[in-house]
């Protein structure tokens, strides 16, 4: 069983042949099965272990990995739609997220993608991801603005 811990620098590590190796955790299915299947890899990207579930891990290890996964799975969540403007070749969005107000652009023929879980995902031209967890929970005005793009 692989042991993952944070070293004195606060970095995720494991021990291979008695020496400390920095590791990273890559979720295999970051959207569809976000709580299962994680690849533990060294800095060169070589897989050291594949975890099918975190259930088998010790409570301490599970906590460390879960903390790490929160950061790995971070996306900007849309709380409110302030504006959507159609432009030549571009669509401008102005939205409120828990991190603050953000303005971004998508290509005109790029639409919010409905995920298996029912949430919507918008990818802007820079590759940033914006999630709408639950369309119905948005305020009335946001729903009105967003409706043509998701309904």
């Amino acid at each position: 069983m692989i042991e993952i811990y944070k070293n004195h620098l606060g970095l995720l590590c494991t021990r291979v042949n008695d020496s400390e190796v920095r590791v990273e955790v890559r979720p295999c299915f970051p959207w569809s099965r976000k709580n299962n299947f994680f690849s533990i890899r060294n800095e060169k990207g070589v897989e050291l272990a594949l975890l099918s579930s975190m259930e088998t891990l010790s409570a301490e290890m599970r906590k460390i990995i879960q903390e790490h996964l929160i950061q790995l799975g971070f996306t900007l969540s849309i709380l409110q739609i302030l504006k959507i403007v159609e432009d030549i070749e571009l669509r401008h969005y102005e939205v409120r997220t828990p991190s603050g107000v953000r303005t971004f652009q998508t290509a005109l023929d790029d639409w919010p993608k409905k995920m298996e879980q029912g949430n919507f995902l918008i990818t802007d031209l820079h590759g940033d991801l914006y999630q709408i967890e639950d369309f119905e929970s948005l305020d009335k005005e946001s729903k009105k603005i967003l409706s043509p793009y998701v309904a």
Binding site: L9, G10, L11, E20, P30, L72, G73, F74, T75
Partner: peptide, 19 residues
């Protein structure tokens, strides 16, 4: 460190630190 929606860059002197 690559994440879905962000990237983290850590600056270190070496593997053993300091971080």
């Amino acid at each position: 460190i690559k994440s879905l929606g962000l990237t983290t860059l850590q600056f270190l002197a070496s593997d053993a630190g300091p971080f």
